[in-house]
């Protein structure tokens, strides 16, 4: 039972990242009809917004400490962050320590801008082109973006830890009547799950309860008719692209304490996220979220020792296996709509 609960927790946490990325992908596909292979790169850029803020807050000046030596035997040059000099070591240190949550406020405008520039500068020229062209151009864009990040930040992962106050793990087992250390789960991963829930709820509420959202939903259902009513649907869809980029970026910012970011982290998620979208149903926002969590949980269970000893290699193929079964039994995915990507 305890292992079951642990793997469900793991699955929800994994599923949070899948669901957030797949949600953005589906938003773009549902509104603009574009298959965006650069979406993983947006997740990565979001993560590097956190790295940028961490480095910005850690900008330092050098002082020479004659009592210590560097690796060449010269007096050690000690780096002191400006922020610690200005606000004192305690407050300054705390600000640096909270760089990841602070990066959220930086990432939102940056990602909206990146999304806007991407859509207006490149993607809009491919609306009427075949999906294969869209895939090629967005995949190329993803490679360009990751090489730009690699140029500035290198190929090595960059540690971007959670604030000390949110490090460590919570002992769930004790709450549920189990022994100590039976079910422990990291605080930050729980925060990530909660954060994903808020973002997903926010996007759904925006689409469901605002006039803007209503127009966008109408445009998703019948773009031509909405256009004939005199509404500039393209402008709204451009903003939706920006919002999708923002969702991916925020997912990336909050992911940095889970795994230190590197330039190819977007590619690690890209294929899985597309499988999530396909399983959920192309163009279906609830489908993307449902499939994200479902596949996250299944992947988690498939990684248990019991599963890997019963069916060796199951942890590597489970998601694709499920995708095949779903597509064979429900060709439009779990919650897919008729007519989407069907000629």
């Amino acid at each position: 039972m305890d292992s079951f609960i642990l793997q469900v927790l793991n699955g929800l946490d994994k599923g949070s990242a899948y669901a957030l990325i797949a949600l953005g992908l589906t938003l773009i596909f549902g509104t603009l009809g574009v298959v965006n292979f650069a979406h993983g790169a947006l997740f990565m850029i979001g993560a590097f917004c956190a790295v940028f803020i961490q480095r910005l807050l850690s900008l330092s000046f050098l002082t020479v400490d004659d009592t210590k030596k560097d690796f060449l035997g010269n007096p050690l040059k000690v780096e002191t962050p400006y922020i610690e000099a200005w606000f004192g070591p305690e407050l300054g240190g705390s600000i640096i320590n909270w760089s990841v949550p602070l990066a959220i406020f930086f990432a939102i405008p940056v990602m909206l801008l990146v999304g806007y520039v991407m859509e207006r500068g490149l993607i809009k020229h491919f609306y009427k082109r075949p999906h294969a062209d869209q895939i090629l151009v967005t995949f190329g864009l993803a490679i360009v973006l990751q090489e730009i990040i690699k140029y500035f930040y290198g190929a090595n992962p960059i540690p971007t830890p959670a604030p000390d106050a949110l490090a460590g793990a919570f002992d769930f087992g004790v709450l549920l009547g189990f022994d100590h250390n039976t079910i422990i789960y990291p605080y930050w991963r729980m925060i990530y799950f909660a954060f994903a829930g808020i973002i997903i709820a926010g996007v759904f509420a925006f689409l469901q309860f605002t006039t803007f959202g209503m127009v966008v939903r109408a445009g998703m259902a019948d773009r031509e008719t909405v256009g004939l009513l005199g509404i500039n649907i393209d402008k709204r869809f451009t903003l939706m692209f920006g919002i999708a980029a923002g969702v991916a970026g925020l997912a990336g910012v909050m992911y940095t304490p889970i795994n230190p970011p590197n330039y190819h982290m977007g590619m690690d998620f890209l294929v899985l996220s597309f499988v999530v979208v396909v399983v959920g149903g192309m163009g279906s926002l609830p489908g993307a979220v449902l499939a994200g969590f479902l596949l996250g949980i299944l992947e988690s269970f498939a990684s248990t020792t019991w599963a890997t000893t019963t069916i060796p290699g199951i942890n590597q193929v489970i998601i694709y296996l499920v995708a095949i079964i779903v597509l064979l039994t429900r060709p439009r995915g779990l919650l897919g709509r008729k007519g989407v990507m069907e000629e």
Binding site: L6, Q7, G11, D13, T182, M265, D268, F269, S303
Partner: peptide, 17 residues
């Protein structure tokens, strides 16, 4: 663990038990 793994939480969670 698969070489392509990025998140090891499902492998680490059972260690203490």
């Amino acid at each position: 663990t698969p070489l392509a793994s990025t998140d090891f939480s499902s492998y680490i969670a059972p260690v203490l038990n």
